Every structure is written in C-alpha cells, then in structure tokens.
Amino acid sequence: MSQIKIPIYKPDLGGNEKKYVNECLDTSWISSRGRFVNDFELSFARRIGIEHAASVSNGTVALHLALMALGVGPGDEVIVPTLTYIASANAVAYTGATPVFVDSLRSTWQLDPEDVRRHITPRTRAIMPVHLYGQACDMDALAAIAEEHRLFIVEDCAEGFGTLYKGRHVGTFGDISTFSFFGNKTITTGEGGMVVSNDKTLIERARHLKGQGLAAHREYWHDVVGYNYRMTNIQAAIGLAQLERADEFIQNKRELASRYEKALSDLPLEPHAEAPETVHSYWMYSVLVKHPDLRDPLRRHLAAAGVETRPLFYPLHTMPMYSRSYRKHSVAEDLAWRGINLPSWPSIPDDQFAHIVATIRDFYDHRS
C-alpha cells in the first residue's frame, strides 16, 4: 500500500482565519452574535451581487429555510435533478412536500429543462436547479418555464460558489437561493451555509425561522415554530477570511482543471467541460470513463497509490426512500455510473499532481 496520501479535498486556511477566530475568543463572542456574522453576510451578498443574505449552520438547513420561506409544504411538489447530493431532496421532504426527480442534460450534466416541462403537474410549486460540481444550469430556459407556469425557483448553489451564468453569479436568478460552506467547499466555514434573495420579505422569513421563531419586538416571545439554524460568530470569522481570498481559490481551481485537461487529454476520459456563456468554478474536477465497468477498477488503482477519489452522486431516484415511484432517468444514470471526482483542492503540490496523473496513466497502460 502506498505511503502517499492525497485527499480528495483539503481547505486552505492560510489567511486571516486564526486572527479572526482569536478575536472571537478574546472578546467571548463565540455563539451566534458578534461582528463577524453581520460582516460575513454583507460581504457575501456584495460578492455575488444580491441584496440580502442570511447565514445558517449548514447548506441543508439553508435549503429547508428557503423552501419554508416560500410556504412549500404538504401536497406540494418540487422538481429536483436526480443527479445531485441527497440534501436537495431531503430538504423538500422535511417540509412535507414531494421531490419530483428529473433527468440531466448529457452536455452539461445539469437539470434538463425539457424534462422539467414533462414533470410539471398542478401540484408543482417550485423548481430546484442544482449547479452540479460548479457548472451552471441553463437558467434562461428554467426561468422561462417558471414564469410560464408561475413557479418559484430555488437555486441550490452548494457547489456553485464562483460559478457564473452569462456574467451573473449563480444564486442571483432564483426567488431564493442557498450556498454551503462545508469543509470541502471552495470557501468554507467548517460547517455553514447561506440563504440569499433579492426579496427582503423572504429573507426576513428565513431569519425569523432560523432563530427559533423569536418575535421581533418582544423578548423570549415565539410566534411560530422555528429552528435553531444559526451560524456562529466563529464560523462567520472563518468564512470572512475565506471570502477575502475567494478570487485566488477560484483562479487556482480553474488552473488545476486546465492542468488536468491537458495532462489527461490523450486518455479515454471525458472531462466535465465548461459550457458556453458560463464560468465553471470546478468545485470538483470530474471525468467520465468510457464504460461503467472501468470506474471502480480505476478508483481502486488510484486508492492503492494513495489517491482519494469519489464517484459521482448516486441518482436520487435509486435511493430506497425515494424509489417508490421508480422510473428511468437514463442520462443521469449513465453519468453516475461512469463518473469520478479527482482531487480538487486548489493548491495541490506539483509532485502530488504528477503522481495522480502518472497513476491514471499507469492504469490505462496496463489495460492496453
């Protein structure tokens, strides 16, 4: 077994993170109050070009709050891509609504607008585009469908920080949108998330719900059933320090993707390419092998050499709790069974990058 250990992701905490966290400790502002919470929210909103942002404890609860703010509940349906992380569907289920799964576009791996149309019913309340692995969905097409059928758009941008569609940051197209700052995200707070919107009323509802439903003008009086979904000042301090270096992180991730594409271009691997009129943030650099039977052997070969990888997400319609009305989603299934995420942290040393590439080449050399 190789002594080399190259993780799939490792955050870069070399900026002002320690300085800001130490300020939290020195001032005793360690919970959900303190200057960093407000500073992080304001800075994040300015960064992506949106009016309002509310920080929360993780990306999953951000989705739950966004749906609750819209009044989504029992009897409603929300259209969700089947090729995404489980949180997208689970947040819908938390509200009592039903996630309705839709296939992907072969060209971008994103939500297929025409399949969205085919799944709209009188019970449909919202469409949830997920900007998978850092590539943008076709927001023009989805916005047109939403307007035609009077549906909400809830953008899941958990993997889309730094992603642009026609010059605009993802998360600015929906009625309400969410981000994740888990430890493997482009900017991280360890755990954490953000709900954003240009609609002040929706953000006020989200703020009300995330703080246990506390009434605005009466101490310890709660007028709705709320949740404890608040971000701590320590998390926000880390997030603000990360945001200060966001341009560097995104540039480095895009350069890493370019290096991978060049180094692997002569192998039978298909990269997750950048679509026209978008900026792919490459949260995870992903490739497809030619046949599903090759994926796991390649992953095992890399693992034996100390290189961690991940498979693409399992399509949600194949999960036991969501398979009651099972139907085929052939594009998503094909992508999922053939896809691999390669190590994607933005500062992989040259020798480790060379080791990853050499190991992949070794795999294909032994199969020729």
Rank of each mutant, 00 (worst) to 15 (best):
15 G>L: 01
255 E>N: 14
129 P>W: 05
30 I>K: 12
248 E>G: 05
40 F>W: 10
287 V>W: 02
231 M>G: 09
149 H>K: 01
207 R>F: 01
31 S>D: 11
331 V>A: 07
58 N>W: 14
193 G>A: 07
157 C>R: 02
167 G>L: 08
12 D>S: 12
1 M>D: 11
127 I>H: 00
216 A>R: 14
146 A>H: 02
297 P>K: 05
263 A>H: 08
321 M>R: 12
353 F>I: 00
44 F>M: 08
106 R>D: 14
245 R>Y: 10
344 S>Y: 03
22 N>Q: 15
63 L>E: 04
286 S>N: 14
78 V>N: 05
243 L>V: 00
291 H>F: 10
82 T>Q: 02
100 V>W: 04
183 G>P: 08
254 R>S: 03
221 W>F: 13
135 Q>D: 09
89 A>C: 07
333 E>I: 02
298 L>E: 01
77 E>V: 09
96 G>S: 09
127 I>M: 00
274 E>I: 05
291 H>Q: 13
284 M>L: 08
293 D>M: 12
136 A>M: 01
227 Y>Q: 12
83 L>M: 06
309 T>R: 05
359 T>N: 10
176 I>F: 02
133 Y>Q: 11
352 Q>D: 15
85 Y>H: 14
318 T>F: 10
268 P>Y: 09
105 L>C: 13
16 N>A: 14
360 I>G: 06
229 Y>Q: 06
239 G>C: 02
155 E>M: 03
229 Y>R: 09
141 A>Q: 12
341 N>P: 03
274 E>Q: 15
250 I>E: 03
139 M>Y: 15
363 F>P: 05
174 G>I: 09
61 V>S: 04
78 V>A: 07
346 P>I: 01
41 E>L: 07
95 T>W: 03
103 D>R: 07
275 A>Y: 01
125 R>S: 08
43 S>E: 13
354 A>M: 06
